[in-house]
Simulated scan of single mutants.
Amino acid sequence: MIKLITQLWQRYRSVLAYLIFGGLTTVVNFVVFWLFNDLIQWPYWLSNVIAWLLSVLFAYITNKLWVFDAKTPTLSSLIREAGSFFGFRLLSLGVDEAIMVIGISVLHGNPLLVKLIDQVVIVVINWFFSKLFIFKKQTE
């Protein structure tokens, strides 16, 4: 049984690690959104941006170190990688904000339920961005 689990982990490590750390990133995003939206009672769109910022910082570190095991041999490649990561995350923030506005302001959904649905969509989008564009194997 342990051998099977080890084989599955080795074969699907990137996807499984992304799901684990993507889940933790979602928890960070969700908790920060809840704190600012429900407890501090800031507007949902501002709470969402703050949650995005903190969760993207968490995601960059965990994705780089433990999900994609990305090596950046030079400062210029690190800057390019980080710029790409945050740039693509800005694109997903646009989708994130659109889902929140439509779900809350247009459809009058519960902000926490809309946020939960939103995060499922965003995790999938971000995985594709990370896998295909950001943390691809360095050729330098």
Rank of each mutant, 00 (worst) to 15 (best):
P43K: 06
K115E: 13
G23E: 08
R89L: 02
W45I: 07
I117G: 15
I5Y: 09
L132S: 04
F129N: 14
W9Y: 14
L65I: 10
D38K: 09
Q10E: 12
S105Q: 12
K131L: 10
K71M: 10
F85A: 00
W66G: 10
F86G: 00
L132C: 03
T72E: 14
L16G: 08
L113H: 10
S55W: 01
E140N: 09
M1E: 15
I99A: 05
V123S: 11
F133C: 08
F68W: 13
N126K: 03
Q119R: 03
S14I: 13
Q10L: 06
V28G: 03
L91P: 02
L8D: 08
W34C: 06
A51V: 06
S84Q: 12
N126R: 03
L91K: 02
W66L: 11
R80Y: 11
A98F: 11
Q7K: 09
E97T: 12
M100V: 05
G22I: 02
I125E: 08
S14D: 11
T62E: 04
G94N: 05
I2E: 09
W52H: 01
L78A: 15
I117K: 04
S14Q: 15
I122S: 01
T62G: 07
I122L: 08
G83Q: 06
G103K: 02
N126A: 09
L132A: 05
Y18R: 01
G23A: 07
I117Q: 04
L19N: 04
L57P: 03
H108N: 13
N37R: 00
E81C: 13
L132H: 03
E140W: 06
Q7E: 14
L39T: 12
L54T: 15
S92N: 04
I125M: 08
T139C: 08
R13G: 13
F33C: 05
F133I: 07
K71I: 14
Q10I: 01
K3S: 15
Q7R: 11
L24Q: 07
S92R: 04
Y60V: 08
E140D: 10
A17F: 10
L75M: 07
V31A: 14
